[in-house]
Design a protein around this nucleic acid. Structure first.
Lengths: 337, 337
DNA sequence: CATGTTTCTGGAAGCGCTTCCAGAGGCATG
DNA sequence: CATGCCTCTGGAAGCGCTTCCAGAAACATG
């Protein structure tokens, strides 16, 4: 047991006794409540210092009905995909926002059935004060689980075909238009697109942005193949597109990874980028700067997304009525377009 | 307030009342304690079902003095570095192990002073039952903070010049020997090494492995430059080494990223890999398979590391006395050596 | 039938904190 | 001096659960 026997921490009663006041008085000092005399405050503060007292989080949580913990739930078919830098960025952003408060972050990888039932339990057992979730697919069970709990919840991105009450999203539509407009501005007209999964909001919105920009320019989508946001998927899609539209002069890929795959295929096919074919990606991940040529892409700040999610949740927990947010995206010009 | 007012959950008292038994009896049913009659059990279970009751985590935590939460603390100068796939892998491993228990994971990015004081508070306030930490530098304040709290703690890796009581580490020494022996087996003798920071256990152990293998082969270290585990650092180190030892015929880089940087510099310098210079890396990250040529490297399973850390912590919390673990590494042969 | 053992029960006392409330003092006002 | 209003205080009642304990009920033993 030695290892598992943390030494006992002093309690509020001991502090009060040492300071010669009642427990309520001591509590008031700690919570900076009004109506505490200077003498009392100083006596209590002295006792706290001498005893090395720290209020027990659990006891406080029980009394206030606030755990001081918020959850971030990530849904993913393949847990290994969590390694995606995307999630790391979200976490960094969320942590940054939470650091300004007294809240801590509980991380739930709720991909498996077991993970989801653990989450359900956590929420219903009031183990957290609120939850942030990244649910990509509309039919993602996470949405339902979270909804039923009745806890404050903030979505990162919007699930497909469902507008949650509170969400933070990147301006995928606007970003895609930006990208396409840029290609159009370069004089390209035979612009094809490699989309993400069309059964996700992101995938669909980025396609819609491309389409709208084309239509606005008096054109029609020149060629479209659905990818899956991965490099391999992008490469495969590019092959199909080259096959179907050998005269294409530009590509808008809905993610940097797919763009990287496309670049590889284009180079193998003897096309020069950007001379023969201009390419624009989306996300502005690290890899965008490392491709050859470096990738012109649409920048979105995932850290900012995480940060805003956390802020929104904090507001919700405080009983405010925040409004959902769409974060702007911007074009980053590099060599590929 | 609407949003922040989760509906009230039923309490154990209500369950007991509905089942027509005392609260203690109901509690016994829930905790599967002995001495509960069949009739009582069924009545309580029925009431639980009808009410949709879930025991309140906080209340239970207060009574049992167990929060059911463990922390994973990551120390890092630059929070952006958290994006390193390394940490994601650790988290996946930890989560996998926790999923088999009732424990949840609290993530602490304790790089800043604020983050560290929050962590100190969390531990002393008994907000978690135990903690896992990745502290690379010996002087990392995390080690002290955690030690003072008296909570069960498990280290991932060993801080420099300090053997924590409980840790899980990769066999860095053995892996480095494996790599160097492989190069020696190829007939190379003018083997140089690019080390990680020598002020970290990892950096030092990997260098020691290289050195031991060389000495065992009757050689002395042929050339050594300290890198910093990054690609840029690896490239810079490689330049220096080429300058100092133009006739080198092999490189052992203490990380894949540094190896990638070295490959680039070697290719720029007109050396062919592996014909002129054989290169071995360490870590077996995704990039190892994507370099040109693909990198021969030492594989270590970071997921396994996370998993074992969590298991060890679970054992500690249960009052057992586990023993520290060193996880084996193995050579993965690809094109570069 | 007296006795002992085992199974089961509910009352009550916690766990360590917050918060409501009645009331004690101090002060100014009329 | 009576009255009112602030400031401050400690007692007590929670928050929702676990667990100890005394004792009731059921059963077996001599």
């Amino acid at each position: 047991m030695a290892a598992a026997t943390p030494r006992r921490q002093p309690t509020l009663d001991e502090v009060a006794a040492r300071a010669g006041v009642s427990r309520s008085a001591a509590s008031r000092v700690i919570n900076q409540a009004p109506y505490v005399s200077r003498a009392t405050r100083e006596a209590v503060e002295k006792a706290i210092r001498e005893l090395g007292y720290r209020p027990n989080r659990t006891a406080r949580a029980l009394a206030t009905r606030q755990t001081g913990i918020v959850a971030l739930a990530l849904s993913h078919d393949d847990p290994a995909l969590f390694a995606d830098p995307f999630f790391a960025q979200v976490i960094v952003g969320v942590s940054a926002a939470l650091e300004e408060t007294d809240l801590h972050l509980l991380l739930c990888l709720a991909s498996s059935g077991r993970g989801r039932s653990r989450l359900t339990n956590l929420l219903h057992a009031r183990g957290v004060d609120g939850i942030m979730l990244m649910a990509l697919h509309g039919e993602d069970p996470l949405t339902g689980i979270v909804g039923e709990s009745g806890l404050p919840a903030v979505h990162g991105g919007r699930p497909w075909h469902a507008e949650p009450q509170w969400y933070v999203d990147s301006d995928n539509l606007g970003g895609a238009r930006l990208a396409t407009d840029h290609l159009l501005g370069l004089g390209r007209t035979r612009i094809v697109t490699i989309t993400g999964q069309m059964a996700t909001e992101v995938g669909e919105a980025r396609y819609r942005g491309y389409r709208e920009a084309m239509v606005m320019a008096g054109l029609v989508p020149y060629g479209t193949v659905e990818g899956d946001f991965t490099e391999a998927g992008g490469a495969a899609a590019m092959k199909v597109l080259l096959d179907r539209h050998p005269d294409l002069d530009a590509v808008f890929a809905a993610s940097d990874k797919m763009a990287a795959g496309a670049l590889r295929v284009l180079s193998d096919a003897g096309r020069t980028v950007p001379a023969d074919v201009a390419v624009v990606g989306f996300d502005d991940l690290d890899i965008a700067a490392q491709t050859d040529p470096p990738l012109t892409t649409v920048h979105q700040s995932i850290q900012a997304l995480g940060k805003e999610m956390a802020r929104m949740l904090i507001a919700l927990i405080a009983g405010e009525q925040p409004t959902s947010i769409i974060l702007p995206t911007r074009l980053v010009r590099r060599g590929s377009a």
